[in-house]
Write a protein that binds this DNA or RNA. Structure first.
Lengths: 341, 341
DNA sequence: CAGACTTCCGGAAACGTTTACAAAGGGAGC
DNA sequence: GCTCCCTTTGTAAACGTTTCCGGAAGTCTG
C-alpha cells in the first residue's frame, strides 16, 4: 500500500524478485537457479517451485541489456517477393534458428538511402548482426558497413579492399555457361535480357554475355534492359521480338525469364523449338513453369547458409580476419533449352 | 586508470553519460535534450554538440527496457516461400514500417508444436505483438494465444468464442465462386484438388466445393488431396487424370493450380479448351503462368494490412473489444478458364 | 518587493536481468 | 581443534536509458 513501491506491484507480471521473495532466497540465488548454474538441492527445489507457481518467464529485453545481445539477426533485401531472396531467407532462417536466434527481415526497395539508413541504424544495436544483399554498392554503403558496431555480412560483390565478410558468386561466368550451352546446341542468334546497368549484378552479367558472345564470334546486338522483375522481362522480350528474331534468349534472372517465356508463347513461338530460353538463379519458378526453364544456379541456398555461418562466426569472434566465400555457378538444363521435360 | 570504473570505460561506445559529461550537464538533461523535450537553448546546443562529437547513438535495448516496448512485430507463418504469405508479408511490412516498427519473421513449418512454442515465447516479450496465420488451430494454440501478455492477431478462422482479434476470409464461398463460374461456362465435370483435410482451409474449401457442386446438381466425386504445394498439386492432377476425365479443375491454392497446369500440359491437354483451371489466392504466380490462371482472390494484401492495423490498434489500446474483420473473396478471371489472355 | 508561477536542472530511482565479490557454512585432512 | 578448500548464499553493482521529484532560478503580477 506504500506510495513508493520497490518491486512487483500487484499489477505487474512476475519478475525474478517475485520468485526470489516467494522462495525466500535472494534474487541472485533465484537467477542462478533459473539459469541452471549452482544452487543447493533445496534452493533449486524452492525456486523452481516458486517460479512455476507464479508462472515466471524471464524478460528478454532485460536479459539482452545485461548480456549485450539481442539474439536477433537481420536480413535486408531489396524485395521479399523475389524467389531468389526467399530461397536465401529460408536457408538463413534455418541456420539462425539453429543457433537459437531469430530472423528480422527488412525490405529496402533497393533504394540506396534506405539501405544505408538501415546500416546506420545498426549503431543502435537492435540486432546482433546483419546480412545484406545490396543490388548497388555505393561509398555510403561501404562507409556505413565498416562503421557498424555489429557485424555485417554482404551477399554479393564488394570492392576487394573492404574488410567485410562476404559471399559472392560469379554471375559473369554464369552467363557464359548459358551462352556456351546454347551455342553448343547450335543456337546462333542469342539474345540477352538484362537488369539495370547501374546495379552490380547488371554489369557483371552484361560483361559475361558480351565476353561469351565474342568468344563464340557472335555479335552482342540483341540486348534489352529492364529491371529484374517479371513484367519488365515480358516487356523486354516484346521489344526484342519486335525488332529481331533470336533463336535463344538468356535472361539475367528467373523472373525475367518467366516474363520472356510468356511473351514468346503469346507471340506463338515454341520453346525450345523456335527459341531456347535460359534463366538465372535457378529458383522454384524455373521448375514451376511450363516448359520448365533451364537456369544458371548461383547457389542461393548455399550462399544464404554460408552468409549466416560467416555472420555467426564473426559474432562469436570479432577478431577473425575478413572472410570471403565464393560459390561457383552451375547450369541446370531443363526443357526450355532442349533438355528433358 | 581506476580499477572500479563507474561509467564509460575507454573501450566502450559512448552512452548518455559520455555525452552528459562532455556537455557538462546531468544525464537527465542530456536525455531530455536528446529526446527533444525541454532544455534551455544553451543546454541544447552543448548536448547536441557533445553528442555529435562522440558520435552518440542511443542503445535500443536499454530504451526498450525502460519503455517496455521493443518496436518489433512478429509474423509467423508456415512457409515463407508460399507467395500468398509473401504478399501478406509485404503488406504487413509496409504498415509496420510506417509505424516505425520492424518485422520479425518466423517459419513454423506448420507444426503445431513449433507454433505453440512460438506463442508461448511471447511471454518473454521479445516482441510487441504477433500476427500468426496457423493452418491448423488446436486447443493449445488457443490457450497460448489467450495467455499471451502481448497482443496476437490471427489471420484465418478461429472459434467464435476466442477473444482474439482476427482477420478472416470466406474460402468456402471462394470455392463456390469458382465452381459457379465454371458451371456458367458450361463445364460439367468439375474436379477439385484440395490441401490436407486436417487443416482449417482444407475443410472449408472441401465444404465449399461439395455444397456448390450439389447446388448445381453435379456429383463431387473428382477430389484429390495433397498438401498445399506445387509438387503435390502436380501429383494430384496426375492421379486425377489417370482415373477421370474432368473438363475443369478447381484448386485449393495457386501452387496446386500451377502444378495441375503443368500436369495438364504435359499430358497434352489444352487449357482452357480441354480443361479449364481455377486457382485460389490470386498470387503473382497465377499471373506469371501461361496461360494466366484464373484465381479466387482472398485479398491477401488486404488481410495482411488489416491484421497489421488491428495489431497496432491493440498495442495502442489493450482494452479494445476483440475485433474481427472479414474480407470477401472475389474471382479474378483469366485465360485458364476462358477469360482474356 | 513579496509571492505565485514557470522553466530548467540534477539526483536518484526504475526497468529486469546477470554477475563480481565477499562472507558464511561445512567437510576433510592433519 | 585448526587450517584449508569448496560450495552456497546474499549484497550490490552493472547494463543504458527515461522519468519522477524536489530545488533553484528566473519571470511575471499585483
Amino acid at each position: 500500500m506504500g506510495r513508493k513501491r520497490l518491486h512487483d506491484a500487484t499489477d505487474g507480471r512476475p519478475t525474478v524478485h517475485t520468485v526470489a521473495a516467494r522462495a525466500g532466497v535472494s534474487i541472485a540465488s533465484a537467477s542462478r537457479v533459473l539459469n541452471g548454474v549452482g544452487g543447493s538441492a533445496e534452493t533449486v527445489r524452492r525456486v523452481r517451485e516458486a517460479a512455476a507457481e507464479v508462472g515466471y518467464v524471464p524478460n528478454a529485453i532485460a536479459r539482452s541489456l545485461q548480456s549485450q545481445r539481442t539474439g536477433l539477426i537481420a536480413f535486408a533485401v531489396e524485395d521479399i517477393g523475389n524467389p531468389v531472396y526467399v530461397a536465401m531467407m529460408r536457408a538463413i532462417e534455418a541456420v539462425v534458428a539453429e543457433s537459437g536466434r531469430q530472423l528480422l527481415v527488412h525490405a529496402t526497395s533497393g533504394q540506396v538511402a534506405s539501405e544505408t539508413a538501415l546500416l546506420r541504424r545498426l549503431a543502435h544495436r537492435y540486432v546482433d548482426g546483419m546480412i545484406i544483399s545490396p543490388i548497388r554498392v555505393t561509398d555510403s554503403h561501404v562507409e556505413a558497413m565498416t562503421a557498424s558496431p555489429v557485424p555485417v555480412v554482404v551477399i554479393g560483390q564488394l570492392p576487394d579492399d573492404v574488410p567485410v565478410d562476404n559471399v559472392r558468386t560469379d554471375s559473369r561466368t554464369g552467363v557464359a555457361l548459358a551462352v556456351d550451352h546454347l551455342a553448343a546446341a547450335g543456337r546462333t542468334r542469342i539474345a540477352f535480357l538484362n537488369g539495370p546497368l547501374d546495379t552490380v549484378p547488371g554489369v557483371a552479367r552484361d560483361a559475361g554475355y558480351r565476353a561469351a558472345m565474342a568468344r563464340h564470334g557472335m555479335s552482342a546486338d540483341m540486348i534489352e534492359v529492364g529491371d529484374f522483375q517479371y513484367a519488365a522481362g515480358r516487356a523486354a522480350a516484346e521489344r526484342l521480338l519486335a525488332r529481331a528474331r533470336p533463336d535463344a534468349i538468356v535472361c539475367a534472372n528467373d523472373l525475367i525469364a518467366v516474363g520472356a517465356l510468356h511473351a514468346l508463347l503469346v507471340s506463338g513461338l515454341r520453346v525450345p523449338q523456335d527459341v531456347a530460353l535460359v534463366g538465372m538463379d535457378d529458383t522454384e519458378l524455373a521448375q514451376m513453369s511450363y516448359p520448365q526453364i533451364s537456369s544458371v544456379s548461383l547457389g542461393s541456398e548455399i550462399r544464404g547458409r554460408l552468409a549466416a555461418q560467416l555472420l555467426l562466426d564473426r559474432i562469436a569472434d570479432a577478431d577473425l580476419p575478413p572472410r570471403r566465400e565464393q560459390v561457383p555457378p552451375s547450369l541446370v538444363i531443363r526443357a526450355s533449352s532442349g533438355g528433358a521435360s
